[in-house]
Write a protein that binds this DNA or RNA. Structure first.
Length: 278
DNA sequence: ACCCAGGAAATTC
DNA sequence: GAATTTCATGGG
């Protein structure tokens, strides 16, 4: 990984493989907005930046070199060789090869686990447009207003104080009590997200599923996008369709240690090509 | 009016 | 235990 610092912006010269659109708009995170011209603005860990690609290089505007090393390098997973992994996954199955070729620039974001937990609780039986709206309102109502004018994602401590009525402005419906249960269990330590990073996979998953409103699919999303457990393979309605028609008889474990990356290729490919199912 | 959306809990059989 | 219904909300 190689980068240079100009005042208040970072230029990463070794991120040629990454596509911002495929990474930020493929349903992993719900807080990035395109601000024209292929640039995206977002807030992570209370820091707001605008990211874009210029001549194959990744440009991060509004970041200090300290934030780059502490947050962005890790968040965008810049130290992992996706080109190599894509080659290996492509050997496993011809259709996976095709899906990976369709969006080769996907990286798996290393998001804040609590944000991933709440976001994917909200995602259940919901569509991406509305999920984004609810997450926006959650941050505006209960996050901290930053100098950038944007809002941080609220902490577990803050949300744990609230009642279901307090959450009414979100218009999240039946998910309100799930959000609160998650916040309380994380705040009291009944669920320890950091411990779930290193716990055996199935134990970590079981712990997450003690939260009301967290089933297998949401737990897998938290494990993959919030805790970077790449063996997780979230199965939503799109993935069920994709697996049964494109990969009949194939189990997630077939894709191995990085099944989650394969899942993201397949998910994105299926969503962008719904006619595949006809 | 009806159906669906990156599901999971509650109820019923 | 497995199959079905219900849960808010909004858009097509």
């Amino acid at each position: 990984m190689d980068y240079i610092v100009e005042d208040n912006r970072i230029i990463v010269s070794t991120a040629g493989d990454m596509s911002l659109r495929d990474t930020l708009c493929c349903g992993q995170s719900f807080r990035w907005r395109e601000c024209g011209d292929g640039a995206f603005r977002g807030t992570v860990c209370g820091k707001t930046v605008t990211v874009s690609k210029q001549e194959g290089k990744l440009l991060i505007e509004g970041a200090t070199s300290e934030d780059f090393l502490n947050i962005w390098r890790n968040y965008f997973d810049l130290d992992f060789d996706y080109v190599k992994l894509r080659g290996e996954l492509s050997q496993l199955h011809p259709i996976l090869s095709q899906a990976a070729k369709f969006a080769p620039g996907i990286h798996i974001l290393r998001q804040d686990p609590f944000e991933a937990l709440i976001s994917f609780i909200i995602s259940q039986n919901n569509n991406i447009k509305r999920i984004e709206g609810i997450v926006d309102r959650l941050c505006e109502n209960f996050g901290e207003k930053l100098e950038s004018g944007e809002y941080s994602f609220p902490t577990a401590e803050r949300l744990a104080q609230l009642s279901a009525e307090d959450l009414a402005p979100l218009r999240a419906g039946f998910r309100n009590r799930y959000i609160l249960d998650a916040a309380v269990k994380v705040h009291t330590g009944q669920v320890n997200l950091e411990q779930c990073r290193t716990l055996p996979f199935e134990e970590a998953k079981k712990q997450l599923m003690t939260i009301v409103g967290v089933g297998e699919k949401v737990a897998d999303c938290v494990l993959l996008y919030g805790l970077h457990r790449t063996e997780a393979f979230p199965m939503d309605v799109w993935m069920k369709r994709a697996m049964s028609t494109l990969f009949p008889g194939v189990e997630p474990s077939f894709f191995g240690e990085y099944a989650g990356v394969a899942q993201q290729y397949i998910f994105h490919y299926s969503r962008m090509n719904p006619d595949v199912f006809k």
